[in-house]
């Protein structure tokens, strides 16, 4: 995989100079945009704890472009695999996750790597997020009488408790809420230093990547704030799709749109569009 000729290609391929006309259909899906923008946040040499879906795609995309030495961890107990294009695993626990890995360990062992401090970035999706980056993947509605019982934390709580987090999710008002119905995976809890006070001195939310922009968190208040907008997205649009007051700086930069190369790698990875439809 590291000998893939695509590796040295990014420098040769430039982002298009002009944006498509506003009425032209987008050349990529929202999921593809999420995967591309998230992949660009990963750096060569890092160790990334990834969930399946967009995080997995983004991590592999990063491996195939700017970070060939990126070490991916899967909670099934996998350290440093190169997942094969067209053979994406259905979860982080099947044999497809283990291809060309450096090491296989138990689930408990790979999760303890988080606690020991060997993981640079935790990377996952979320059903619901709030102003302080708390994530909910357990209950929609009152947990005592839920409207929807969701699958739960899996390793999400452990990753979010112990690593710097990148979260990739669709930007919708029903997902970006003032307060999550249930804190499955902790962000900055009630903001300020409440996370550390709760016994979580390490890690915390780093970036939230959506189909509208890239968000970070204020150094003191720990509230979410826009860092960059995707091409064609206005400050009003991102605010209108957020269920809390989301600051957008007047000079917020615009991200480079996905390149043909990034999109072609993603489509080769997931030809059946399991995760990018």
């Amino acid at each position: 995989m590291t000998t893939d000729s695509a590796l040295d290609a990014p420098a040769r391929i430039q982002a298009p100079d002009a944006l498509p006309a506003p009425d032209a259909p987008p050349a990529y899906t929202a999921s593809e945009l999420l995967a591309v923008m998230s992949a660009r946040l990963l750096k060569e040499g890092q160790t990334v704890f990834a969930g399946v879906g967009i995080p997995l795609l983004a991590a592999i995309l990063a491996q195939k472009t700017r970070a060939p030495g990126l070490t991916i961890l899967f909670e099934g107990g996998v350290i440093g695999p190169f997942v094969e294009a067209g053979k994406l695993p259905p979860s982080t626990n099947e044999q497809r996750c283990t291809r060309r890995a450096n090491m296989l360990v138990s689930i408990t062992e790979v999760l303890l790597m988080l606690q020991r401090g060997y993981v640079d970035v935790g990377f996952m999706g979320g059903a619901q997020i709030d102003r302080f980056g708390n994530l909910n993947s357990s209950f929609i509605g009152d947990p005592a009488h839920p409207k929807i019982r969701l699958p739960g934390t899996g390793g999400g709580n452990d990753i979010a408790s112990l690593a710097d987090m990148i979260v990739a999710m669709k930007h919708e008002k029903r997902r970006f809420v003032e307060k999550v119905d249930f804190i499955t995976s902790p962000g900055f809890l009630d903001g300020g230093d409440t996370r550390a006070q709760a016994g979580l001195p390490a890690g915390g939310m780093f970036r939230v990547v959506t189909d509208l922009g890239i968000m970070g968190f204020d150094a003191v208040t720990k509230a979410m704030t826009v860092l960059a907008l995707h091409p064609g997205v206005t400050a009003q649009a991102i605010k209108a799709n957020t269920g809390f007051d989301l600051p957008v700086p007047a000079d917020a930069p615009v991200t480079e749109p996905p390149t043909e190369l990034e999109l072609s790698i993603l489509r080769e990875l997931d030809p059946q569009r399991l995760y990018t439809a």
């Binding site: 606690q115 357990s138 739960g152 408790s161 499955t184 409440t194 016994g199």
Partner: peptide, 13 residues
């Protein structure tokens, strides 16, 4: 002993 679940509603429950 461990260092996750703290501060979350998973622990609360």
């Amino acid at each position: 002993p461990m260092r996750s679940m703290l501060g979350s509603d998973v622990l609360g429950r």
